[in-house]
Amino acid sequence: MTEAARPSVVPRRRPGGGTVLLCLFLTLGLAASLAGATEIIANRSVAVSSLSLASARAVFGMRQVKWPDGSPIRVFVLPDDHPAHGAACKERLNLFPYQLRQSWDRQVYSGMAQAPSEVASEEELLNKVATTPGAIGYVRKVKGNDPVKILSIE
């Protein structure tokens, strides 16, 4: 929003004004696309199309284990040090990977919840989510013909 206010200053630099504006928009556009680089994906059987941030954290934190229609949620994740895991945690859930790990460990070793299913690669994660009813996960790039649905976080 602060960047949006700047064009009132920019036109004063007459000769390069248009170029500066163009650069500004390009930078903003790039930043926006990077910020949205990770997508939360779900199996096509999942009835919802969006999750609140609180709900998404509860699902990936393994505290929420069923969809609103009562069917079980299956959570798939990548290893803690995988770049896509870090990106999904920070961009989509707004938390750090070590926090999620702490929260899983505390629940798993006290019997209060089960761990998510860990897979090695984004391809495998996409396949698991596509073929497992009730599944949820994340990837950095979803292609138009991938057999999963994208959930928006609100």
């Binding site: 284990v65 069917s71 079980p72 949620i73 070793y109 019997g111």
Partner: peptide, 12 residues
Amino acid sequence: ANLSWRPTPDWL
């Protein structure tokens, strides 16, 4: 070592 079984979402 532990075991956990969730037969349905409502039971653990």
